[in-house]
Design a protein around this nucleic acid. Structure first.
Lengths: 337, 337
DNA sequence: TTGTAAGCGTTATCAA
DNA sequence: TTGATAACGCTTACAA
């Protein structure tokens, strides 16, 4: 069933049906109703491919997701879910593209086949070749996270450096003189993954500023890695009395590691960092932490992209979030020896 | 840039380029190479919308994901990721559709706009209106999970009843006479969510078969709910010495609840059930559990759907997984009073 | 207020 | 082995 069929049954021309559908030209109330009746009866909806071909746009957003091998984190998942919902609210669909070298073909197909009007990229590296690819193709995109040349690009990000710095200052104010940063995995940091790099910068700077000792360690994105990490920390750096983490997936392991070592939080040891709200609240005791507003960020990414699509000449916009550190129960004064 | 441009530059007709591209008609090696050179030079790829319009198929699969409001579980996330990758391997893209009443429009748009060749549905209810909708529209689909009329449909599922039953038998063999089932949330079970319902059936039957006492409780999909659930269980049913759970997201809470009550696992209390491998391994002590093979299931769902697409007349196929219960350290003999 | 007709970029039929 | 041409279903000038 197509627009011609509707036109025939309603006794009008195809163009009239089209105009009634899009509202791009006034249609008399009488014919509009007649057409609508037929449409309702047959449950007709225009063919998306034909419309896309004619209009030169697909009303579809591309979303590149991290590979399945490394389990998606809650944060990533939350981004995906909110992006899809925000897009749906604007009557846009979302086409998923797996990332990773083996799936380059998929990305290329979507980009060069003009299957989408624009892209949202997650898991951005400071130097990201997908970004370069999209720029070269001239396809509009918004990133969650930002590259090192963030000046004239569209993005939404968290100010990891500022957040980690705040956490360090908070701990320093409580008297801690030996603090550790539990970062993301060695591979991610080495690959130039923005949050990992910026967390490190913020940590190093803040620690220097306060004249205290900082030891930064990398940690895999799961519980066992967190546990091992705490163990290592306790033996190799027994002087450390507090940690700042940007690795939420390691939190359960960090907790277990501390428990197994018989370390009480916050009496013997303080824990703080950046994490999604439920991770912070599930920690025992509830964790003093800056909460990543994934929902807002996902929605904003969509909003920015839609703006960019509707106004191609618009100047680059970006949003840098610096959510407050919510005080809970996992940080306290440095223990007196 | 389009196929005409390629044809012009290669000095052939558009149809020849098309045939060289699709291989639907023999093309002389010489011209094929000449065309390929131009294509490589301009990095040309056929317009997906035009191809879809002409061919009547989009090379795209629709995937309906559960609403974001209730946080996606690891299992669901894992399905999404593996489905996207499996589809990419077959050169199919995946279009996401959020489910939930507010997003009906999105689902309808994708279905009636013929944006996809077929659908994969997750979070199936025993009586599911999206299934009914697709059947009515005649769109091919495969479900992860199955409705109550699973006879002549295409699906991949876990035999929750059998798995829970095995767990019960395992516990009964160890001497436990009072066992609890920690099910999914009250709302899900009430809504006729298959796994919840079938888990209950399997539990009730197995308990009856062994002539032991069973108490089934519902539990929200998060840690706090798990903790509250264990608390309730300890006060209202102190006679219970073991639990079977199909609620992996509640596991951290269950663990914490038992710890807080000073209950040692497995000496005082046994824990078993169905969970993704990492949930089972992250439990302390590692949990005796049947592991949901999300990766296999996601890939199979795609495989079934592609088969159904390529052979519309093929008889319905389905795969019911009954993964073994992996013995770990969380189950032991019933404690002697 | 409505209709006619061209064209979006493909693929496939028919001819050569 | 290749080329011309008619669709696919839609939107939108241009006419009436």
């Amino acid at each position: 069933m197509n627009i011609g069929e509707i036109a025939r049954r309603a006794g009008v021309s195809r163009s009239t049906v089209s105009y009634a559908l899009t509202g791009n030209r006034p249609v008399s109330e009488a014919t509009r109703r007649r057409i609508q009746a037929v449409i309702d009866e047959l449950d007709y909806r225009p063919n998306a491919s034909a419309r896309a071909l004619k209009e030169g746009r697909t009303r579809t957003l591309g979303l590149v997701i991290p590979p399945a091998s490394q389990r998606l984190t809650d944060m990533q998942l939350s981004f995906v879910a909110t992006i899809v919902e925000a897009a749906a609210d604007a009557d846009f669909d979302v086409l998923l593209s797996p990332s990773g070298d083996e799936h380059d073909r998929s990305f290329e197909r979507i980009v060069t086949g003009r299957r989408v009007d624009g892209f949202i990229l997650m898991e951005i590296r400071l130097d990201d070749d997908r970004v370069a690819r999209l720029q070269q193709r001239g396809l509009p995109f918004v990133t969650i996270g930002r590259t090192s040349e963030a000046q004239d690009m569209w993005w939404v990000d968290i100010d990891y450096a500022a957040l980690v710095s705040r956490c360090v200052h908070h701990l320093a104010d409580l008297g801690h003189r030996h603090i550790s940063l539990v970062n993301r995995s060695t591979e991610l940091v080495a690959a130039g993954y923005g949050p990992g790099r910026r967390a490190l910068t913020g940590f190093t700077d803040a620690v220097a500023e306060r004249g205290i000792a900082g030891v930064d360690v990398c940690c895999g994105d799961d519980a066992p890695a967190g546990e091992a990490c705490v163990e290592r920390l306790r033996t190799q750096h027994p002087e450390v009395t507090a940690l700042v983490t940007v690795n939420e997936a390691a939190l359960p392991g960090i907790q277990r590691g501390l428990e197994r070592a018989g370390v009480r939080v916050p009496r013997d040891f303080s824990v703080t960092g950046v994490a999604a709200r439920h991770w912070a609240e599930d920690f025992r005791p509830p964790m003093t932490a800056a909460e990543v507003p994934t929902h807002d960020m996902g929605a904003q990414a969509v909003e920015l992209l839609l703006e960019r699509l509707s106004t191609p000449s618009a100047p680059p916009r970006h949003v840098l979030h610096t959510p407050p550190v919510s005080l809970r129960a996992s940080t306290g004064p440095v223990p007196t020896r």
